[in-house]
Amino acid sequence: MSFRIRAARDEDLPHLYEMAKLTGGGFTNLPPDKRSLRAKLDRSRACFASADGGAGDELFVLVLENVDTGQVRGTCQIFTHVGQHYPFYSYRIGTLTQHSKELGRTFRADQLSLTTDLEGASEVGGLFLHPRERAGGLGMLLARSRYLFIAQHRARFADRILAELRGVIDEAGGSPFWDGLAGRFFGMNFQDADQFNAIHGHQFIADLFPKHPIYTAMLPEAARHAIGLPHPSGRAAMRMLETEGFAFDKYIDIFDGGPTMTAFTDKVRTIAEARPARVIAIDDDGGEPALIASGSLAAFRCAYGRLRPVGDGVVIDRTCAAALGIAEGADISHVART
């Protein structure tokens, strides 16, 4: 069974909608709303069709396709410059230190400050793999394909990149962080707010969120404990991000308190290690395991394969070449599968 990453198409909407219904909430980039998903596909199609990337916030939606059946079994998204149309809000965790000479004590209080520090950065997100396909490294293929896409279209992306991880959500689908902080200002539960945000955007946050720093000591215990923690299902994603060079820099999501990971784009491991090459031969062996990508924009493809250098080019295996739809003479980029 062979899989490949490709650009999303209009006919992928039913597959995306079915996967969106499996996310369990808190997954803003993949809402279970057909109108929102269709808008994403429309926007992505326009960006894939644009040869000249500007400074605007472009969106590229990729899907994981079973080459044998044509079924879409996963998806991921890439944003070139967040916050260009609507403010991109985060909470920044800071510390205020105060000293009382009379008491002889020093007090340190953690604060949450509403900020748009990350505005203009690129973002990788919206990664979801169908529960029945969570084996064989397909989650890694989805995740790392985004970086090969960025490497092949580097001029369209910012020098800083972020990834927001879903925060702690309870068995009822609620968020302890939301209930303890924002929910008190909005008069709606987490699920309603999350859905509203996914469909209508962030502007309501600017209208109603408190602008002054929030002392975490004033939050309920459950909300405090959720700050900066990923959802249990996101721990593997967090480890993959850390392997790529991302780090938690004290920014959290304003809805569920999940961690926002950041990195310098050119320091991301897959981007830094990606190498261009020309395919000079295709055979039944190929060589060492690798991620191999070909094509640009809507023609972009990425798949696992085997590759070995020969002279001024490389040899790849037939299965990968078929998945990518390439022949001898094709230009590719590749990185070791580790």
Rank of each mutant, 00 (worst) to 15 (best):
G174A: 13
A198M: 04
P176I: 02
Q195T: 00
K211Y: 03
L208V: 11
A206K: 09
S233T: 14
D179V: 00
Q191W: 08
E164S: 09
A198Y: 00
A206L: 12
Y215C: 10
A206E: 14
E221S: 08
D170V: 04
M238W: 08
R235W: 15
L229C: 06
D179M: 12
G234H: 08
R166N: 05
R239V: 00
L165E: 02
G187Y: 04
H225P: 01
Q195V: 02
E164K: 14
Q191K: 11
L165W: 07
D194G: 09
A217F: 14
L165Y: 07
D192C: 06
D192R: 11
P210A: 10
R224N: 08
E244Y: 15
F186G: 01
E244Q: 12
A222F: 02
G228N: 03
A217P: 09
T216L: 03
H202I: 14
D207F: 15
G174N: 13
L208W: 01
R224M: 12
S175R: 04
R184A: 04
T216V: 08
D192G: 03
L219F: 01
E171K: 12
N189Q: 11
F204K: 09
W178A: 00
L241V: 09
P232R: 00
E244M: 11
A206W: 11
A222E: 10
E171D: 08
A172S: 13
M238K: 05
G174P: 02
M240P: 01
H200L: 11
P213S: 10
F177C: 00
P176S: 11
G183V: 07
F204T: 01
A172P: 06
T216Q: 01
A236R: 13
R224W: 08
A198N: 02
A236I: 09
L165G: 01
A217S: 15
A236N: 11
D192S: 09
M240G: 05
Q203G: 07
S233W: 10
H231A: 08
Q195R: 03
T216R: 01
A217T: 14
R184P: 03
P232F: 04
Y215S: 12
P176F: 07
G228H: 07
D194F: 03
D194M: 14
A223Y: 10
A172M: 08
L165S: 01
Q191P: 05
P230E: 10
G173C: 12
L208G: 00
I199T: 15
G187E: 14
R166L: 11
E171R: 13
I199L: 13
A182T: 05
F177V: 00
A193D: 03
M218H: 13
S175W: 11
E221A: 09
H225C: 06
F185K: 07
A206Y: 12
R235D: 08
P230C: 06
P176N: 09
I199Y: 14
H200S: 06
A182R: 04
P220H: 02
Q195H: 06
F190D: 00
I199H: 11
A237I: 05
P230G: 03
P210Q: 12
